[in-house]
C-alpha cells in the first residue's frame, strides 16, 4: 500500500472522528466548508484542466439550489419529491444548462467564454427577482421540514460523504484519458487538434461535469441550511471560489481542496478577529483580495505547486 493512500485514509478517519471532539457549531461550519470545497474543486476541473476561465460558476450552484428547493417543498410549486432525488435533479439541471452554454461559447477561443460566463449569474439572478412568486425574490424561501437531514451530526456526515464521493469522481476523471486530453487542450490547443482531439468537445465535457458537481453542491447547501436565496448566484461567492482555487493551485484538485478549506474557515472564523485586533480601517475581504493579488503575481501556480516543488528539492 502506498504511503499517500495511507495518509488519505488517515485524513478521512480524522474527518469522520471530528464530531467526537468538536462542538456542534464548528462542526456545522466545517460541514458547510466541505460543500463549499465541492464547488471549488469542480471549478478547478474546468478552469485548471482546460484553461478556460469560468467566471459564472455560481450560476450552476444557484440553479442546483433553486431547482432542488422547488422540487422538495410542496409550498412553492406543489411538488414534493424525495430530497435525494431533488439534489440529483438539481445537479442534472445545472449540467444541462452547462451543456447548452458550453456548446454555444466554447466553440470560440480567447476570452469570449469568460465574458459570457461573467454575465450569466446576473441573468439568472434577475429571474429570481422577476418571477418572485416562484423563486421568492431577494428573500429566498425556506424548505424547513422537507430537508434531507435534521441534526447537525447527520448533516455533517452527509457533507463529508458527498465531498469524498465528488472528490473521488473528479480525481478519477482527471486521471483518466479524458483528463489527459483536457490538459493537452489547455497546454496547446493547436497541438491537441493536430493529434486529432476534438478540443471543443472535451471543453464542453469538462464544463458539463463541472456544472453538475456545482449544482449538486448548491442543492446540498440548501438541504444543509434549509433556505435558498439569490446570494448563491452572487459574485461574492464566485470570488471566494476563485480565491480558494488560485491560492491552492489550479489544475491539481488537491490544491483547491486545501485552499477551499483554509479560506472558508478563515473567512468565517478567525480572520475577522485577527483583523479587528489590528484595528485598521479594513475588512477581511480586503485582506483576502490583497493576498490573492500577491499570490497571483508571486506564485501564479499556487501554494500547492510551490509546496510540491519545495518538497521535491
Amino acid at each position: 500500500m502506498k504511503i499517500s493512500t495511507l495518509f488519505a485514509a488517515l485524513l478521512i478517519l480524522i474527518s469522520a472522528a471530528l464530531p467526537l471532539v468538536i462542538p456542534e457549531a464548528y462542526l456545522y461550519l466545517i460541514g458547510l466548508t466541505y460543500l463549499f470545497a465541492i464547488i471549488v474543486i469542480s471549478w478547478d476541473l474546468m478552469v485548471g484542466y482546460t484553461g478556460q476561465v469560468n467566471l459564472g460558476h455560481t450560476t450552476f450552484v444557484g440553479l442546483g439550489a433553486y431547482i432542488a428547493a422547488l422540487l422538495q417543498t410542496p409550498l412553492r410549486i406543489g411538488i414534493a419529491v424525495h430530497p435525494a432525488v431533488a439534489i440529483i435533479v438539481g445537479g442534472l439541471a445545472a449540467a444541462l444548462v452547462g451543456f447548452v452554454i458550453g456548446v454555444i461559447t466554447l466553440r470560440l477561443r480567447g476570452y469570449y467564454f469568460s465574458l459570457v460566463t461573467a454575465i450569466l449569474p446576473l441573468v439568472f439572478m434577475q429571474t429570481v427577482f422577476i418571477w418572485r412568486d416562484v423563486f421568492g425574490g431577494e428573500e429566498g424561501f425556506s424548505i424547513a421540514g422537507y430537508a434531507l437531514f435534521d441534526t447537525t451530526l447527520s448533516k455533517y456526515y452527509f457533507a463529508l460523504i458527498l465531498l469524498l464521493v465528488s472528490l473521488a469522481a473528479m480525481l478519477k476523471i482527471v486521471r483518466s484519458r479524458i483528463g489527459l486530453r483536457l490538459m493537452a487542450v489547455r497546454d496547446s490547443e493547436e497541438l491537441a487538434e493536430s493529434i486529432g482531439i476534438d478540443t471543443t468537445r472535451y471543453k464542453v465535457l469538462a464544463f458539463v461535469l463541472s456544472s453538475f458537481f456545482a449544482g449538486i453542491a448548491g442543492a446540498a447547501i440548501v438541504n444543509y441550511r434549509y433556505t435558498v436565496g439569490p446570494e448563491l448566484y452572487d459574485i461574492p461567492l464566485m470570488l471566494l471560489v476563485i480565491l480558494s482555487a488560485v491560492l491552492g493551485g489550479l489544475g491539481t484538485i488537491y490544491g483547491p481542496l486545501i485552499g477551499a478549506i483554509v479560506i472558508y474557515l478563515a473567512k468565517n472564523w478567525w480572520l475577522r478577529d485577527l483583523i479587528s485586533m489590528a484595528s485598521l480601517p479594513i475588512n477581511d475581504e480586503i485582506v483576502l483580495y490583497a493576498i490573492l493579488i500577491a499570490v497571483g503575481i508571486l506564485m501564479p501556480r499556487g501554494f500547492f505547486h510551490e509546496l510540491q516543488d519545495r518538497l521535491k528539492h
Binding site: 502506498k2 504511503i3 499517500s4 495518509f7 488519505a8 485524513l11 488537491y254 486545501i258 500547492f304 509546496l307 510540491q308 518538497l311 521535491k312
Partner: peptide, 8 residues
C-alpha cells in the same frame, strides 16, 4: 510519495 507530504 510527493502527494504524501502534502497530505501530511
Amino acid at each position: 510519495m510527493r502527494y504524501a507530504k502534502a497530505v501530511l
